[in-house]
Amino acid sequence: MSLVTMTIAAEQRGTVPAERTAAKKWTRLARPALGLVLPVTLAVVWEFVVRMGWASGRLAPPPSVIFQEFVDLARSGDLQRNTLVTLGRVAAGFGCGVAVATIVGAAAGYSPVIRRLLDPSLQALRAIPSIAWVPLFVLWLGIFEASKITLIAVGVFFPVYLGVMGAIQSVDRKLVEVGRAFRLSDVQMVRRILLPAVLPAYVIALRSGLGLGWMFVAAAELLGASEGLGYLLLDGQELGKPAEIVAAIVAFAVVGKATDWLIAFAAAPFLRWEDVVRQE
């Protein structure tokens, strides 16, 4: 009797932690999956409604039609070509915007004189809705790539500029003093104290800049382009092909999220020290 209870007790003791870790694994998988419940349900319901003939689905195509459109676009190579064109524009605009914003933001954050000189003008320019620049950029730079890339660069510039400037201004003076006490040269001070200190804020600035970059590439391409994902949107509208529009939108979402994830992924090894806080 006692032996039996003991074995049971031992078994329970053995299984409970295993069950608990299994349960933990489930919740870890289930938590992100929870976010999928709503969109998947909606898609399934809409598919069902159209299949049953309760709605035509002509203006709001069901998932299967959109998927078919994706396959067709991919098979003809249109999807890849247009995605690459758009990606190239974002990359060029993002690169230019980030380069200029980093230099100007760092200078303004570091030197009060430069900040007083530049910041008011830049803040004034920031207040202009960037789309308002389009006619001017088209007049100055023509209707091809240059004006589009410039528009994207302008969109990327402001969040990155503000982020860099703010990050440099808010570097802990006490840590800078540690650098001074250990007699770091200017270059070492930047590399060993300032850069690591501003990196978390810089990554956030880059990510919000990239988000704006995607917003402005769509705007630029909608306003006149012969290729790119924005052109697919326009093409779908003019030819009355809603599936093509939705496919282009989905492509925007996927590529935009992927590039954002790429930045986060590339920065992660340098920001591991921050994770400690987040996990707690």
């Binding site: 540690v178 006490a181 200190a197 340098f270």
Partner: peptide, 12 residues
């Protein structure tokens, strides 16, 4: 060498 009131360790 100097030691401050706070540890002032570099968090990264």
């Amino acid at each position: 060498g100097i030691i401050f009131q706070e540890p002032r360790l570099l968090p990264w």
